[in-house]
């Protein structure tokens, strides 16, 4: 493994080691003396920013490395734009947490970047599907993928209603509730084309194309879980689960960075 891969994997392992025990033993001496709020925030912010920055840079480099006219080129640009917007949003959140010593308001300027990032992620996923279907490789029929998308949309609508109704009915201010519902909904929308990508890329199991998408798709699942849990933590008061939210986002962003690194390496080495 190269140095950057090792760093991302080590940070993901460290995130598990510091955030997960806090869910079960929040009063442990370790968290009172050594790993206080500020230390955990600094670690979490650094790991998230590194994963997102790596993802934005490597996805953009992957796009630039592809020749003009390649159907996947624009998709990689949008994927880089998605992670770049999330990086900017995370910079805003981290500035509040580390420099101003408080949580960012909901909504904040950071949310504008995150929402723009989601739009880019959805466009990227659709462009990837179009590009991969155009490759002529046997990755399933358009009809089959459309049926999967329709089924996923119906399941996500049902699951989304069940999961988000308590958040929408919570006592928090309207703007906060709207943001808390919007992110998981956008996650579900992003997951629909992503599920198609999972179906497509499963055909590439055992190859390096698969490792790229394994990283990116695991990342999306972790981000969606993080958004849903965040909505519960802030709306319904599940504060003890807050470290789990950080863990999901940290690992999700690191996986995104890892996946894009594999893509550039696939194109160049």
């Amino acid at each position: 493994m190269r140095r950057i891969d090792r760093l991302l994997v080590a940070l993901a392992a460290l995130a598990y080691a510091v955030f997960l025990p806090k869910v079960f033993w929040p009063e442990a001496g370790l968290y009172a003396h050594l790993l206080g709020e500020l230390v955990l925030n600094a670690f979490g912010a650094s790991a998230k920013l590194l994963g997102l920055l790596a993802g934005a840079v490597y996805a953009t480099r992957s796009a630039l490395h592809l020749e003009r006219g390649n159907p996947a080129r624009l998709a990689w640009f949008f994927l880089g734009g998605w992670l770049g917007c999330f990086f900017a949003g995370q910079v805003v959140l981290s500035t509040y947490a580390l420099a101003l010593g408080r949580s960012a308001p909901l909504p904040s300027v950071g949310d504008a970047f995150f929402l723009l990032g989601y739009a880019m992620a959805i466009v990227a996923a659709v462009l990837f599907i179009r590009a991969y279907v155009s490759s002529g490789f046997p990755i399933g029929t358009v009809r089959g993928h459309a049926a999967s998308a329709a089924l996923a949309a119906a399941l996500f609508a049902a699951a989304g209603y069940a999961l988000l109704a308590p958040v929408a009915r919570s006592e928090t201010p309207f703007a906060e509730r709207a943001i808390n519902v919007a992110y998981p909904v956008l996650d579900f929308v992003t997951l629909i084309p992503s599920l198609i990508m999972i179906r497509i890329t499963l055909h590439f199991r055992g190859g390096r194309v698969w490792t790229v998408w394994a990283g990116l798709l695991v990342s999306l699942v972790f981000m969606a879980a993080g958004d849903i849990l965040f909505a519960y933590v802030t709306s319904i008061g599940l504060k003890p689960l807050e470290p789990l939210v950080d863990l999901l986002f940290v690992v999700g962003y690191l996986c995104a960075g890892w996946g894009t690194i594999q893509q550039l390496r696939l194109e160049t080495t």
Partner: peptide, 14 residues
């Protein structure tokens, strides 16, 4: 015939 499809996944150079 295979090459243009491969371009999509790994680029023309590779």
């Amino acid at each position: 015939t295979l090459s243009p499809g491969l371009h999509v996944f790994i680029g023309r150079e590779k």
